[in-house]
Design a binder for these strands. Structure first.
Lengths: 146, 146
DNA sequence: CGGCATTACTTCACATGTTAGACAATTTCT
DNA sequence: AGAAATTGTCTAACATGTGAAGTAATGCCG
């Protein structure tokens, strides 16, 4: 690292940059744990979405839940399917949709990762403070709508 | 879009996801304008960093200023150099570093984009409110340190 | 001075982000 | 029913994110 020179401070007051830096500092705490399970952060989001739903989901529902775009999700689903973590079946009424659900392997992997993830999130929550965290999430939600 | 089913709400209270969504809602407002100038958001960050500095910068300084990792920055610099927007010269004292500065073309492009960018940022600022925005940026900075 | 760790980047390999276009199944209109 | 628009998903093409390994110039130390 080189020392930062003061003529570049403009970035520090930029909201997009502040959001980027904050999120990166979050993910730095999760990624090593996920990597031990050969999971990227996006793959983990898909696993979570499927585990949270009793019924199978179609691609559009997973996209909405995980905030992933179609092309990324397409590749991620192919990857997870290849690892026998999820299963795709053709939709009943609409042949365009596919019903996607976790396999036993997928659910088992979710059960292993979930508590580790919760523990890290808990550490962040306690370190930052639940009140401020809740305040922050509210502001972010309002920003998204504005 | 499919209607969201209530069993997937878990994501909404997740800070990493909230940060991702908020940032995406920001960038959606900037990207079309940048695309008109054949600029990605990251290329624009590099241009800004160089324009803000009187002296040439080396790669490490640009990386710190723009929050880009080495490999990404390497490719972006090659791209911008190929478009004659910036210039690399070998460092005086240390041959490993390169002194990077904008060309006349690069500076001209910066001057065209900067006011449009400022206008969009101003709209967001007024819409969200300067006080809340400032509060939000403070919280984000604290989160990054915690 | 010569070996050796360090530093500043770059390159590689793989995964995702982003936009635009392709395609097939469905719906709508006539 | 048949043509046209719409919808759900995928592919293509290019740019970036990420971790690991490679390379060349410096600095350190005996």
């Amino acid at each position: 690292m080189t020392d930062s020179n003061s003529s570049l401070r403009g970035f520090d007051r930029s909201l997009p940059m502040a959001l980027l830096r904050a999120r990166e500092s979050m993910m730095r705490q999760f990624r090593p744990m996920l990597a031990q399970h050969d999971m990227t952060e996006q793959q983990w989001r898909v696993l979570r979405a499927l585990a949270a739903s009793e019924l199978p989901l179609d691609v559009g529902e997973i996209a909405d839940a995980t905030f992933l775009l179609g092309p990324s999700l397409s590749r991620i689903l192919a990857n997870l399917e290849g690892r026998n973590l999820l299963l795709r079946r053709a939709g009943e009424t609409d042949q365009r949709r596919s019903a996607i659900s976790l396999t036993a392997d997928g659910r088992a992997l979710f059960e292993r990762i979930a508590p580790e993830s919760e523990e890290i999130y808990g550490l962040i929550e306690r370190s930052f403070g639940e009140d401020r965290l809740s305040e922050l999430i509210s502001l972010l939600a309002e920003l998204e709508k504005s």
